[in-house]
Amino acid sequence: MTALTLARNEWIKTTRRPALWVTLLCLLAIVGIVFFQRYSSGLSNDDVTPLRLPDGWAFILGEPGPMPAIFGAIVVILLVASEFSWRTARQNVIDGLSREQFYAGKVLLVPGMSLALLGLVVALGVAFALPGTGLSDLTGPLVGLDDLAFAGAVLLSMVGMGAMALFIASVVRSSGPAMALFFFYIAFGEQLLAALAARFIPAVAAVAHYAPGQVFMNMAEARIYYPSLQEAAVARALERGAAAPVFPSATVLVGVALGWTAFFLLAGFLAFRRRDL
């Protein structure tokens, strides 16, 4: 059984699923509104720089915030949890996949879906940015190293969120409850746990912002990757008389995100393997 075979089957299951396309349309609509607002402001408001490349990469990659990661997680939950409710996970194993192979197929889904969603967001952003971009006037590369680093970080945050979704779907095995648990954790659960832990174990407060949800969301913050944006933020804060903001180290964030991603993938596998199908 090759990875290609697993990928081929996941492709059939994913691309024929109407829920995937509905979710993608919702994401494109939300991100499209964000890009359109900036595009139209650039046209009508002289104080707003028109959306154009290469300056616009930070906006295109960062302004949608955690939306692509959250929509990617929704798709992963829908695709994985339903394998249990329809008992197709069981049938796949009966047909000849080992449990490891079945799970590997689902793991392939996580980066695949993240790449696809990020690609769509970028394509949409570029579509809005191209009219303002004078390709003949470009003096440097269209995509800089900072842009690539930021794109990689956004992709990693999406993969991490997808891995968390895969873990929850493998444990809960039902789309509705898995989705509810995922949103509860992202919206309240993590802050609640961090607050409780900090109250009883003060030392935990210092590391609470390295909780998985925080890390994956923070990674999509453009200012971490662009020194010019950091300098502007510091200048604005000093103008207001506020303390200069401190930005987390990108290297540390990436390291922690990789660690959480590996943890969720492994824990999801152990939970999947341990239980009968």
Binding site: I12, K13, R16, R17, P18, W86, R87, T88, R90, Q91, I94
Partner: peptide
């Protein structure tokens, strides 16, 4: 096959 047929309903 085990119990009822187990297939993807949308395929």
């Amino acid at each position: 096959t085990l119990e009822q047929p187990n297939f993807y309903p949308y395929l």
